[in-house]
Design a protein around this nucleic acid. Structure first.
Lengths: 163, 163
DNA sequence: AAGACTAGCTTGCAAAAAGCAAGTTAAGGG
DNA sequence: CCCTTAACTTGCTTTTTGCAAGCTAGTCTT
């Protein structure tokens, strides 16, 4: 389970995608963020095959993103909830939601609104810089190898600069 | 091509995932954000099968996220670049990168650093509210149906509130 | 007390997607 | 000529996904 090739890329985008990139994983998380907790509830909402859903949930539990816990013994019943690690994926979903609202929503507008409790307004996510607080945009971001880069990554970066 | 079931969900997260959710799509975008433009360059960097890569690129071009353009006639050669629509996916990648750096990076640290040109510092993305500018966190966000919600979505929301 | 129903799955099989290796096209270079 | 490069395509195998049915342990309905 999980996409092995992705995990081997020494990349902080690829690594999460080794499990989030499996079909339905992110939509399962969406449901959990929306407060759905039960197997059948998620299954019905997404229309995902039950064998795939149980496999995805198992992977997410393995990864510590979701917690499976009984809410009833006799009969044994379980619910699924996001862990802190899972909740920290919120920016990923908000970013997708924002892009989807801009580019894929119909003429009537967004199917779902997000409300910021602190100000009470319907909002969208704006990415900002952790250091200066300014808005982050494609044009004002550059990349370079970090401390965890391997030799190959450093070499490629150097080659690219030279060219 | 593209995942039909996702596109039918009337959801601004699911809809983008109907093409971004195909294996390798997001990593292709990562490469394009890193400045890679050529087929073989991307193929080698990711280790993706060539038939899959050409199919992914074709889908991304169809979706208007990537532009395919000749950089040489005789012989005909093409390069791939992000369109504005594609560049607007930056927050999605930055959000994944941030999460990956926190939870999947090794002890040495991040393999890749992002630098904010405006302040010159290595940064990570902080999601903020478009309305008040405050930081957005799982605990201070709630959801409700938007103008584009369908009947079923409104009904489910009402049911959930009642419970 | 028999039968239907519910939640949360698993199993078996068919269909679709991805992976792999080899081949193609249209040059250019030695 | 023959070799190499870029950007693919084709054919075949393996892996995932989808679909329908079945299972289990209980509750509810009549």
């Amino acid at each position: 389970m999980a996409i092995q090739a992705f995990a081997e890329l020494n990349c902080s985008i690829a690594h999460p995608l080794s499990f989030l990139g499996e079909r339905w994983s992110i939509l399962v998380l969406r449901d959990l963020f929306l407060g759905r907790r039960r197997f059948d509830e998620i299954q019905e909402s997404l229309g995902v095959a039950t064998n795939v859903l149980s496999q995805r949930l198992a992977t997410l539990v393995d990864e510590g993103i979701v917690e499976r816990r009984p809410y009833s013994e006799h009969p044994e019943r379980f619910e699924y909830r996001l862990t802190e690690k899972g909740k920290d994926l919120q920016p990923v979903l908000l970013a997708l939601l924002r892009w989807g609202d801009r580019y894929t929503a119909g003429p009537e507008g967004a199917p779902l609104e997000t409300v910021h409790a602190d100000c009470g307004k319907s909002f969208h996510m704006v990415p900002t810089c952790s250091e200066c607080g300014g808005v982050v945009e494609p044009a004002n971001v550059t990349n370079r190898p970090g401390p965890g880069a391997n030799e190959e990554q450093r070499r490629r970066y150097a080659e690219r600069r030279a060219a």
